[in-house]
């Protein structure tokens, strides 16, 4: 069990609800992933559609924790208003705060993110900031009141994994009491293992499962990866060495003779 904000959870995987081949596959994948937190969004109502009702009913039937995002917001004002609408719509004070600063790689705008975070925390939100792996930004987010940080592994949807393990490891070492979740850029279960192995508390992903050839099976793979990564962290990975060292005892080796 681990603590995420005010919740005790078993799974360390947070999973998105977008980009699946069908709603049925989305449901099966979420279940197979073992995740207890799903991310959702909000969009303008299209009068010709059922207004997101069917999607929301399906998600509610899972009885999981809901983490609304502010995806697509480019300004402090947009992000704050979107978070406020999400709080009413989804009946939660959790918000995955995204304020995009660059459309090319969907990189968070650190300055706007910090300002929006300060305001939303003052309004009682539990802010999960989607941020870069910059140590100073992360320190300022913590000073603003964040108990959780979600640095990117790589730009959203790229599947590149942890492109700057040094920066992520530094964050873990410098912030032992903050809940750290790698958000975005995860492409394969091995990336999730790597994040958990270095002591990250969780991983948030969407595309890696939704766009896999077999999303349900990939969700199972990530479920196992989370367990493997955490167990590896808790059990302590051996130190890396440059020189070979035999694992089989050399004492009593047959045919041994002094060279």
């Amino acid at each position: 069990m681990w603590q995420l904000a005010d919740k005790q959870l078993e799974s360390r995987l947070l999973i998105g609800t977008a980009l699946y081949p069908s709603p049925e596959i989305m449901m099966q994948s979420i279940k197979a992933s073992g995740s207890q937190v799903v991310t959702v969004s909000l969009r303008r109502q299209n009068p010709t559609e059922s207004g997101g009702k069917d999607f929301w009913k399906m998600i509610q039937s899972l009885d999981l924790n809901i983490l609304p995002n502010t995806a697509g917001c480019h300004s402090v004002k947009e992000a704050i208003t979107t978070a406020q609408m999400a709080r009413e719509l989804f009946n939660t004070n959790w918000v995955k705060l995204e304020v995009i600063g660059d459309d090319y790689n969907l990189q968070p705008d650190p300055f706007a993110l910090l300002e929006a975070t300060q305001e939303l925390i003052s309004q009682g939100f539990e802010v999960f900031p989607y941020c870069t792996d910059d140590l100073v930004l992360c320190e300022k987010l913590v000073a603003a009141g964040c108990k959780i940080l979600m640095p990117w592994g790589a730009p959203i949807g790229t599947g590149k994994g942890l492109v700057n393990p040094y920066a992520l490891r530094t964050l873990r070492e410098r912030m032992p009491n903050i809940t750290l979740i790698v958000d975005a850029g995860i492409g394969a279960p091995s990336h999730a293992v790597e994040a958990l192995q270095m002591g990250y508390d969780g991983v948030l992903l969407n595309t890696a499962v939704a766009q896999a050839s077999d999303p349900v099976k990939m969700a199972q793979a990530f479920n196992s990866a989370m367990l493997a990564g955490r167990l590896a962290y808790e059990s302590g990975v051996m130190p890396e060495r440059d020189l070979a060292q035999p694992s089989t005892p050399t004492l009593g080796t047959p045919f041994w003779h002094q060279g």
Binding site: L19, R43, F55
Partner: peptide
């Protein structure tokens, strides 16, 4: 007026 509804998200 912005009128928004739940939608899939990552």
């Amino acid at each position: 007026i912005e009128l928004v509804v739940p939608m899939q998200g990552g």
